[in-house]
Write a protein that binds this DNA or RNA. Structure first.
Length: 467
RNA sequence: GGCGACGUAGCCAAGUGGUAAGGCAGGGGCCUGCAAAGCCCUGAUUCGCGGGUUCGAAUCCCGCCGUCGCCUCCA
């Protein structure tokens, strides 16, 4: 079985082959830190977390770089509004973002570069582009000359000529071509600035990612990820800069773009004001619900966000977790046919799961296989399987759902173990039930429920769990 | 206006040439003192609409309708 990944550049699924055997160089566009992250950012974090987890599951060592854009127009503007130092503001939101990352349970990137710490690399790159004739200097600004790059537009499927017609934005008169973009921007008084051959200034909008890729991963990388909304102009420009600078093609072997999170059919975004912050979400729901919402769809499709869907995701999550419940207390062991079926389903689930994930990370299908395993486990438990008989299948489910999907199936153990007390109560309750003292028995069950402990009676004994 | 996606049961969603996965919700049954959970059974003769190609299409082609994204900072 081999992994295939959809490449935005070729618009096809392609067999995944790394530049260096066993190692994946993966770069994912991180946030511009001028405000708290919303669920759109959360989706992106989770999508690439799941992709990375699966690559690691397959045995790859993943060098995962995620950048912070900590200097740009919005940060400067926001800092001015708040009377705060732009660097301090960026630092504050980086901290907030990393707390979100911890809360969402994503695996930590190998490197998290910041623009302000990469200025040397950026200047070197801009200078190189100017020397090779791909950039030109005007009044301390440096622009990239798209007409010098015959490949320009190949990622987004645009032609430079077409863009002239569609240009709705007022064009900087100093540009040679309307599609030219800034590599370096001369700074105005009071703005953050670094020395450069062209005078004090700061990096343009796209050069940072090219420079950080070069610095931390090399001239060519395996996977570059980001939201679909970054295809143009951001990633298009990144390719132009990197390939013109190094002379090597392709800069990126697999361009991966995740679909947008939609609210009432529109993209969740700051400018539309229809966003929910990660913090607000986590106030109401656990992180796994968002993860589940994504797993049920495909990462390239847009995902609608609404309460009904959240509810469905929550229910599906509970069903998955239900399979991890222990064997019944008085289980006598299941019959051979049931155990054989369980074992067969376990194998089929692993195989189906891997085949689905190998097919461009088809999590919805992979999840379907997990649910098949859930049914087999529940069936075996009902048939009286012992803990030892359930264990292998449950461990398989746990491994796939937790290690690869990043979900949490088993509740955290709480300090101050209450198990002996609950069990004592259940023993008493069992005697009451035998004596047909149902009113009292129900009082115990209701009382425990109020304390967050669910009691369930089965033919093979009563079990309890935290709600 | 240009570029690119998408439209599958009440809802979410997979499937891109061989006769419709999975989840949620609903209905019926089993189990239970009741409940919860679980298990079993149950749902599209049909995949936005209209043509065409094919022995055969949700899957390919053409047209139409609708939705969304990008073309400007954006995960």
């Amino acid at each position: 079985m081999s992994l295939r990944i959809y490449n935005t550049l070729t618009r096809r699924k392609e067999p995944f082959q790394t530049l260096e055997p066993g190692v994946v160089r993966m770069y994912v566009c991180g946030p511009t830190v001028y405000d708290n992250a919303h669920l759109g950012h959360g989706v992106s974090l989770l999508v690439y977390d799941i992709i990375r987890r699966y690559l690691e599951y397959k045995g790859y060592q993943v060098r995962h770089v995620m950048n912070y854009t900590d200097v740009d127009d919005k940060i400067i503007q926001r800092a001015r509004e708040l009377g705060e130092d732009p660097q301090a503001l960026a630092e504050r939101y980086i901290q907030a973002f990393e707390q979100n990352m911890r809360d969402l349970g994503v695996r930590w990137p190998t490197v998290q570069p910041r623009v302000t710490r990469e200025i040397d690399w950026i200047v070197r790159m801009v200078q190189g582009l100017v020397e090779k004739g791909f950039g030109y200097v005007v009044d301390g600004d440096v622009f990239f000359d798209v007409s010098k790059d015959p490949d320009y537009g190949k990622l987004s499927g645009r032609k430079v000529e077409d863009m002239l017609a569609g240009a709705r934005v007022e064009v900087d008169e100093r540009k040679r071509h309307p599609a030219d973009f800034a590599l370096w921007k001369a700074s105005k008084p009071g703005e953050p600035a670094w020395e450069s051959p062209w005078g004090p200034g700061r990096p343009g909008w796209h050069i940072e990612c090219s420079a950080m890729n070069l610095h931390h991963l090399g001239e060519q990388i395996d996977i570059h990820g980001g939201g679909r909304d970054l295809i143009f102009p951001h990633h298009e420009n990144e390719i132009a800069q990197s390939e013109c600078y190094t002379g090597k093609t392709p800069f990126v072997r697999y361009w991966v773009h995740n679909g947008m999170l939609l609210v009432r059919g529109e993209k969740m975004s700051k400018s539309l004001g229809n966003f929910i912050t990660v913090n607000d979400f986590l106030q109401q729901h656990e992180a796994d619900v968002l993860r589940m919402l994504l797993l049920q769809a495909h990462y390239r499709s847009p995902i609608n966000y609404d309460d009904a869907r959240l509810q469905q995701a929550q229910q599906a999550l509970e069903r998955l977790r239900g399979a991890m419940r222990p064997a019944y207390p008085e289980a006598q062991g299941a019959d051979a046919a049931t155990l054989q079926a369980l074992e067969a389903e376990q194998r089929a689930a692993v195989q189906g799961f891997e085949a689905a994930m190998d097919d461009d990370f088809n999590t919805a299908v992979a999840l379907g296989h997990l649910f098949n395993l859930v049914r087999a486990i529940n069936r075996a438990r009902d048939a009286g399987a012992t803990a030892a008989q359930l264990a292998p299948a449950q461990e398989t489910l746990r491994r796939l759902a937790e290690d690869v999907f990043g979900l949490h199936l088993t509740p955290e153990t709480v300090t101050g173990d209450i198990a002996p007390l609950v069990e004592l109560l259940l023993e008493v309750r069992q005697e009451l039930r035998r004596a047909r003292q149902y009113a009292l028995a129900d009082r115990i069950r209701d009382g425990l429920a109020a304390l967050g402990i669910v009691v369930e009676d089965t033919p093979q004994g009563s079990v309890w769990r935290r709600a």
